[in-house]
């Protein structure tokens, strides 16, 4: 599963904080493109498979200061 966060809206620091918070639930790979910060999720915990993407995006938003 891959998430693409627009650099104009989402801050790298907030994404890193979210990865830190969610690291127990999946393996994360962070990479940057010109316009996007890309987060790849692998080995997702089966219990949260359906909601992790949405919850992760909300968490990132909540971490933006």
């Amino acid at each position: 599963m891959t998430l693409k966060f627009d650099k104009k809206i989402y801050k790298l620091k907030a994404i890193k904080l979210a990865i830190q918070a969610y690291q127990e639930l999946a393996d994360f790979n962070l990479s940057q493109e010109k316009k996007y910060i890309q987060v790849e999720l692998k080995n997702i915990d089966q219990d949260v498979k359906d909601i992790i993407k949405d919850e992760f995006c909300n968490y990132v938003l909540s971490q933006i200061r």
Partner: peptide, 22 residues
């Protein structure tokens, strides 16, 4: 302003999943 978008998004985090794109 973008700050206002963050503010509004924060209020809605409880009841909805949000994703922003530009």
């Amino acid at each position: 302003p973008l700050e206002a978008v963050y503010g509004a998004a924060y209020v809605f985090i409880d009841q909805a999943y949000l994703f922003l794109e530009s």
